[in-house]
Design a protein around this nucleic acid. Structure first.
Lengths: 155, 155
DNA sequence: TTGGCTGCAAATATTTTGCACTGGC
DNA sequence: GCCAGTGCAAAATATTTGCAGCCAA
């Protein structure tokens, strides 16, 4: 979260362009609904759920269906343009701003999710591969806790 | 996985005793069905799903219901005697042998889950807390890949 | 004895899917 | 104009819950 506002905006535009490029590369169509979902995900600093994306899309396209949002998100996930943060209870969250695996810090009270600054786990992955013989494809690292705002409220 | 067979067996007995102690401490009853689930979880080196536990329990108690297994697993989770490894697609897996958070290595093909040897992440957690102001309660670290056996089969 | 536990079935909730119609390319 | 994409509704699936009867303490 050390990115200045201007470079963050540039980052969002780059992400959107990258998503569009990947879609066109594979001959997927860019419909207005899809574009709306892309835009939301490209600047998804709050790691939205499908429902949150759906609510946002409906503001500009009221007829959009939930199924379409699901399909678009799954498509982007398959294109590795969105990172899924899945939970057993449902209400999965999505990160379209940084689609590569990275640590998340999750508030168990307000359910906010942020991206902490942490050194990469590349070396741990290599160590694991050497030790176990696994071919390691991906990883997931989540920390669960209570955010400063919720800690304050409690008192 | 460097534990010799004898100490592993002792470990399993200790886990079972600990589970029973926690149940009695809080005045939960020890029914035959519950005991069967406890026993399976105490030596759950394969991180079984509820269905797997259910299949196992039915061998000794054919009338056992799936709901009872769910209830028992949830109870043990609440007592922090079982670690839930939840997945968005369902089919959560459970670790009753090591109920504290620890890394898992998951084969994306055969869905086996093992416990790799990795140094603890305690210092990372502390670093995070200091940096973000979060009160960190728990974490989860999963690596996804293909195990040596499945790599072999592919060729 | 008694209230927690079990087992059955029905209910939940999220995500997926089938299909006819629409519209991007 | 073709066929992928959309929207609706129904389906699929894992998990939870209500409740009557049972049994561990």
């Amino acid at each position: 979260m050390r990115i200045a506002l201007k470079s963050r905006k540039e980052n969002v535009n780059l992400r959107l362009e990258e998503m569009l490029r990947k879609l066109k590369e594979r001959d997927f169509r860019v419909t207005p609904q899809r574009l709306a979902v892309l835009k939301i995900l490209a600047c998804s600093f709050n790691h939205p759920s499908v429902e949150m994306i759906y609510a946002e899309v409906k503001k500009t396209f009221p007829t959009t269906s939930l199924a379409t949002v699901y399909k678009t998100v799954i498509l982007l996930k398959d294109l590795e343009q969105v990172l899924e943060i899945g939970f057993p209870a449902g209400c999965n969250r999505y990160d379209g701003n940084i689609p590569q695996p990275h640590p998340h810090l999750i508030c168990m009270q307000c359910e906010s999710i942020i991206d902490p600054d942490l050194e990469s786990f590349a070396h741990v992955t290599e160590e694991l591969a050497a030790e176990t013989g696994f071919k390691i494809v991906s990883h997931r690292l989540d920390f669960f806790g209570i955010c400063p705002a919720c800690l304050k409220k409690k008192r």
